[in-house]
Design a protein around this nucleic acid. Structure first.
Length: 777
DNA sequence: TTCCTAAACTTTTTT
DNA sequence: AGTTTAGGAA
């Protein structure tokens, strides 16, 4: 037997050895799923399959990196380089890069991140004369995203009765039109959003049989991780790619399906056997991760859900400790309790920082944990903030690079056309945009012919200089590497210098970030193989840009650092820790208020709870706070219903939280007494009184320190006079400040400034270009 | 055009 | 509470 098969149990080995035909591996939490997948790839190669013919798709870069690393480890010196292991998005983007011209996109197309996409939505909504307040870009974008994930085109969207009814009901009947305009604009900009990477790839395979054939032939063996989280677009692509050989191996756990909000449908995994009638199903039911107690409550909890693939997880691990349940008075107490507990675990139980994870439902909860950890001097890492590449200064810098690679990229253009300030303001931009839309040209093309489009004077000169500068950068693309271009851009635009000159704390930080960006580009250029994709070669600027946009915050932080890890439960999927704290187990927070509408939503929350529990190998702490600040207001909540689903025998209530003695479940259930108190908003519990100091008085005092303005109602016949006719000594009326006398006239002819002594409001400097003044006499 | 303040909105989860 | 946006002032 081959060495790599020795560490596997019987079921796992069967999964590895079943290389031909459709295979579904139902892998319970901690059952060695990644091990099976990686060993299976190694096994395929040992059997003589060319690594070139193997495709493995994951959802996160982290999972892809881990899989790749482990395959390389098993294979030792054998070639793993040609393996296609990556996220759906990165692998599809890479293929689209090669084939984009077929669907009318430039091969160096831009990938819009969520911010870019929302900005485009906002722009086209405005152009359709729709109220951006009502058609909120965020909501509209989510709706569009949902459509794409379900493979609904703008045309289909507009004629689909069900969809139209939904939009009518939400009083947003024009979303279809926005979707249509949005799609057209993205296409015109040579840009795809995240969802397009799936959607356009599907269209490519669907409409170009020769392309489909090429990749069907290439990917003879396909493996999909976390299959329960695939959406219809991903599902259809897999179906198309696998249709020729049907060597499709999916791995998943229906109990861990937690991404339906992103369009994932649990049906994909439930229906696998119907899609492939000769599909083999292997269940991995032995858990190697958790103690018996942890696994027991996980099983108890998930039992409450309906319609699962039947399976029973078991473990041969030790019983372990009971699950500690802790109630605290406030969210801050919860943070304090956890920090104290971590210190105790380190001291008495020889745990290190990196053994511990604090998990929560929403990102907003990280604040109190962060604070208490900092106070206790416990090093920590938060996963899931904004990505390094989302920072403003980095996005600005990258916008230059994007524009060089793809001048049609309007979002990039708008971002940097006047940054650093070069005298091309909003008015000029709007004019250029209008001209571009009227003629169906790109804004860049309008700028190229600025004189023809009627730009004059200083603005024209500025535009021409700008266009010339970008063109000179673009001419470097074929001759110089990404780093040299980027460095040159930073220098030439004055961008880096401007940041360097800003000596404020934030300014220094921004400058350092830009230096870090340059380092990352240098590293990209100098690393012989592209670690993300395993691909040799493409070191172009556009390759760099396409890669970084798909990186998340988590990808840029070291998971092995000796720090306590803080993250949402979603971000924790696939990970494991010796000690897990799960905070905020309160009704309305977890399960979240937003997910209480249907049974399906509640069941997804429960699966999320299941995922959270099963991250823990040894010790699990569940905590909740009596009161917590939400939306800046103190709210009280009951303990989560999920706690009630855990049999009492597994729980240990004896832990004190944050100096507050735990009252046990008698109190936690929400006693009549508590409910009564809550019924009287004026009553005010001691907690709410002490935690919510009355700040309003202080605030109003500070505001009152400002010089008071005496109100003035403009005369009925108020008509602004021509500022040019103004002279010193004249008596004038201002709409707000009332009557006054011109003391002095100064400033350039472009920007005249008058100093006026107002009778009621004292001396003010008035910019005559903008303020309205009427000469009284 | 740019800066400042007040108001409004946020908070479900992410490639 | 903190952050982003809109509108007004200069």
């Amino acid at each position: 037997m081959n060495d790599y098969l020795k560490g596997l149990n019987e079921r796992q080995r069967e999964a590895v050895m079943t290389t031909e035909g459709p295979l579904m591996i139902v892998a319970g939490a901690g059952s060695g799923k990644t091990k099976v997948l990686t060993t299976r790839i190694a096994h395929l190669m040992a059997k003589g399959v060319d690594s070139f013919n193997i495709l493995a798709l994951t959802f996160t870069n982290k999972a892809a990196a881990e899989m790749k690393e482990r395959v390389e480890h098993i294979l030792a010196n054998r070639e793993a380089r040609n393996l296609y292991i990556g996220t759906f998005h990165s692998v599809f983007a890479r293929i689209l890069r090669a084939e984009a011209h077929r669907i009318g996109y430039p091969n160096a197309f831009t990938i819009y991140d969520t911010d870019d996409a929302k900005s485009v939505v906002k722009a086209v909504t405005g152009e359709l004369n729709l109220d951006v307040q009502h058609y909120k870009p965020n909501q509209v974008y989510n709706r569009i995203s949902g459509a794409k994930n379900a493979l609904v085109s703008p045309r289909e969207y507009l004629v689909d009765h069900h969809i139209q009814q939904e939009d009518m009901r939400s009083n947003r009947p024009m979303i279809g039109q926005i979707y249509d305009a949005y799609a057209k604009r993205c296409f015109k900009n040579g840009a795809m959003d995240f969802d397009d990477l799936l959607y356009k790839f599907y269209e490519l395979l669907k409409n170009f049989p020769e392309v489909l054939h090429k990749y069907q032939h290439k990917f003879k063996y396909i493996m999909i991780d976390e299959y329960q989280d695939t959406n219809p677009a991903q599902y259809e692509v897999i179906k198309l790619l696998g249709a020729a050989h049907e060597n499709v191996c999916v791995v998943g756990d229906d109990a861990q399906s937690i991404y339906s909000f992103r369009g994932a449908t649990i049906q994909n995994i439930l229906q696998f056997q119907k899609d492939y009638d000769d599909a083999k199903v292997i269940k991995l039911e032995q858990n190697y991760r958790c103690t018996q107690n942890i696994l027991a409550i996980a099983n108890e909890v998930i039992k409450q859900n309906k319609g699962q693939i039947p399976k029973t997880l078991f473990t041969e691990n030790e019983t372990g400790e009971k699950i500690k349940l802790v109630r605290t008075m406030t969210d801050n107490d919860e943070g304090k309790f956890i920090a104290d507990a971590i210190q105790e675990l380190r001291l008495r139980n020889h745990y290190t920082n990196k053994d511990v994870a604090i998990l929560y439902r929403t990102n907003a909860q990280s604040r109190s944990f962060e604070e208490s950890l900092r106070r206790h001097n416990i090093p920590y890492t938060i996963f899931g903030g904004i990505s390094f590449y989302q920072r403003k200064e980095i996005k600005d810098y990258i916008a230059y690079l994007r524009l060089i690679v793809n001048p049609k990229d309007e979002e990039a253009l708008k971002r940097i056309i006047n940054y650093p300030i070069r005298g091309i303001g909003k008015t000029s931009v709007d004019r250029a945009l209008l001209a571009a839309n009227e003629r169906d040209m790109s804004m860049w093309e309008v700028l190229e012919q600025a004189a023809y489009f009627g730009f004059k004077g200083g603005t024209l000169t500025s535009i021409e200089e700008f266009v010339l500068m970008i063109k000179s950068f673009a001419s470097m693309i074929d001759k110089q590497n990404a780093y040299d271009i980027a460095f040159h851009v930073g220098k030439q635009t004055g961008f880096v210098k401007e940041l360097f000159n800003d000596k404020s704390t934030e300014g220094v930080q921004r400058y350092e970030n830009v230096q870090e960006l340059l380092n990352s580009i240098k590293e990209f250029v100098e690393t012989p193989t592209n670690e993300e994709s395993g691909e040799v070669g493409d070191k172009s600027l556009s390759a760099y840009l396409q890669q970084i946009v798909l990186l998340t915050d988590s990808d840029q932080k070291d998971p092995n650092a000796d720090t306590v890890k803080l993250m949402t439960i979603h971000a924790a999927k696939g990970l494991e820790y010796p000690v897990v704290f799960l905070g905020g187990l309160e009704e309305g927070l977890f399960p979240n208020q937003m997910s209480l509408n249907t049974r399906e939503e509640l069941e997804e929350e429960r699966r999320l709870f299941y995922v959270a529990i099963t991250r823990a190998k040894g010790r699990l702490y569940l905590s909740y706070a009596n009161t917590r600040y939400r939306f800046g207001q103190l709210v009280q909540s009951d303990q989560s219903r999920f706690i009630n689903e855990i049999p009492e025998q597994y729980l240990d209530h004896s832990y004190a939280g944050g100096g507050v003695k735990n009252q046990g479940s008698k109190w936690g259930q929400g006693s009549a007494f508590e409910r009564m108190q809550r019924g009287f908003p004026q009553g005010g519990t001691p907690a709410s009184k002490s935690s919510a100091p009355e700040k309003t008085h202080v605030a109003s005092l500070i505001q009152n320190n400002k010089p008071k303005e005496v109100a003035h109602t403009p005369s009925a016949n108020f008509v602004p006079s021509d500022p040019a006719t103004l002279a010193e000594g004249m008596r004038v009326e201002h709409q707000k400040f009332g009557f006054g006398t011109v003391q002095k006239l100064e400033g350039s002819s472009h920007n005249p400034v008058a100093t006026i002594l107002f009778e009621q409001n004292g001396e003010k400097k008035i910019m005559l270009n903008y303020a309205k003044l009427m000469i009284v006499n």
